[in-house]
Design a protein around this nucleic acid. Structure first.
Ligand code: MN
Ligand code: MN
Length: 298
DNA sequence: GTGTATC
DNA sequence: GATACACAACGCATA
DNA sequence: TATGCG
């Protein structure tokens, strides 16, 4: 990590502020930057010090985009980065740490609509402070997602493990467990895999942990494989490259009951909602804990 | 979107 | 100066 | 070792 600079996000100039990034909605780069400014106080605590992958659409979502992991050589020096080894022997990589509102403004200027972040933080990259169950439904029906999430929550609760839901802005939901960084990725993933398989065995007609799409049939995929070094999940409050500019939205369990879609929140309705309800994940890190040993059945 | 090569 | 072009992911499970 | 997958 490098030194932190407090730069006003308004000071970051946008190269083509009127460029339309969402053709069907007429949403411009300026609007994306304004959105980042408005959610920064909620988003920054969730992405701070996590290596960030950019999904960029410099010519809007009607044109193909690309992922960018490596920090570009032209990155301004006031943006934090972290350099770390890749799993491939001898290779390393430098990635962006989005630690300021100004950085968010810069990302908007780069045409980065969607950001993906690690489940660990720069000072201890091998030890995740998040465990994710990524619920991927077979179609646009959100009711099975809520069913899976509530079931998962109940089973975690039996073990005394708190969990926090987030719509992904696409079709699914993330169920997130804060961890105390006492174990590495392989340990967390093994735990998540076993837990997910037990859930799938309990409701085999509705849930699956099969990695190959072909084997999933019409079932909801409980994806535990995000829990790995160098892997990412969609950042809280990030915007999806889809019509309507839906966003990944942390919600309370109570609120989840009323949602009918993973795309319930978007760039144009989220700010009003946040002002009314506040940040449902405000206390997430205070709930960080350890994973207990799993019992034989369940 | 940006850096570099080329006329 | 205008324009063309290249470039911008990785870890892991499974077959 | 080469995909499939996210
Ligand atoms: Mn998903
Ligand atoms: Mn997934």
């Amino acid at each position: 990590m490098t030194a932190r600079v407090t730069t006003d996000s308004d000071r970051v100039e946008l190269s083509h502020p009127d460029k339309v990034l969402f053709p069907e909605d007429g949403i411009t780069k300026q609007e994306l930057a304004d959105y980042f400014r408005d959610v920064a106080e909620f988003m920054l605590p969730q992405v701070r010090d996590r290596p960030m992958t950019l999904q960029r659409f410099p010519n809007g979502i009607g044109e193909p985009g690309f992922y960018q992991k490596e920090a570009p050589s032209y990155l301004p020096e006031w943006i934090d980065t972290v350099t770390f080894p890749l799993r491939e022997e001898g290779r390393e990589q430098r990635q962006i740490l989005c630690n300021s509102a100004a950085t968010l403004a810069y990302l908007a200027d780069q045409g980065s609509i969607t950001q993906h972040v690690w489940l660990s933080r720069a000072d201890r990259l091998e030890y995740p402070d998040r465990m994710i169950f990524d619920l991927d439904p077979p179609d646009d029906d959100f009711s099975i997602v809520k069913f899976a999430a509530n079931t998962l929550r109940a089973k975690l609760k039996h073990l005394g493990i708190p969990a926090f839901p987030m719509t992904t802005g696409s079709r699914g939901l993330h169920v997130v467990v804060p961890l105390d960084r006492s174990v590495d990725f392989d340990t967390v993933r093994a735990w998540a895999a076993e837990f997910a398989r037990k859930l799938a065995w309990a409701v085999p007609d509705s849930f699956t942990t099969e990695l190959r799409k072909e084997s999933r049939g019409d079932r909801l995929f409980i994806d535990y494989t995000r829990n790995a070094y160098g892997q990412t999940t969609v950042a809280p409050y990030t915007v999806r490259a889809k019509k309507g500019a839906p966003v990944a939205m942390p919600v309370s369990w109570e609120e989840l009951e009323d949602l009918e879609s993973s795309q319930a929140y978007n760039i144009r309705n989220i700010v009003k909602h946040l002002r009314e309800t506040g940040d449902p994940w405000r206390d997430i890190d205070r709930h960080a804990g350890k994973l207990p040993a799993l019992q034989e059945k369940k």
